[in-house]
């Protein structure tokens, strides 16, 4: 029961920031700097979420670095989300096996 309430609390505090601006800001913002700021937000927030956290995502900095490099390379050649994600997982898995064998 305690866990269920916890999950409902999480759902609520996740939903509020998502829906609040949609309901409140219904008019176009004219200011060019605010518009530009909002244009750059996704790149800033996704980059900040990814680095440096990605290096601690697999339990080993070395295997994570191998996966990161794979992801960046494939993303550079504009492979799809699925291809990039699955390839990164595979490279981390294989480099774990290699690290264990060495």
């Amino acid at each position: 029961m305690k866990a269920l309430i916890g999950v409902l609390v999480m759902a609520l505090v996740t939903y509020i920031p998502r829906v609040f601006p949609l309901v409140v800001f219904r008019r176009q913002i004219e200011n060019i700097y605010i518009r530009s700021f909002l244009f750059y937000v996704p790149y800033a927030v996704l980059a900040a979420l990814t680095f440096p956290s990605i290096f601690w995502s697999t339990g080993s900095v070395i295997t994570a670095a191998a996966g990161t490099l794979t992801a960046i390379l494939l993303a550079y050649f504009e492979k799809s989300l699925v291809v990039v994600a699955v390839a990164a997982i595979l490279v981390v898995y294989v480099s774990q096996l290699i690290a264990a064998a060495v």
Binding site: A47, S57, T58, T68, T70, I72, A75, E78, A88, L90
Partner: peptide
């Protein structure tokens, strides 16, 4: 564990796939 560990990178790899192409 080895499989679970490897899957930990999936989320971040996806973020990279979103931001790199426009950055080019």
């Amino acid at each position: 564990d080895s499989v679970a560990n490897a899957m930990g990178i999936a989320l971040y790899a996806m973020f990279i796939a979103i931001i790199v192409p426009p950055a080019k």
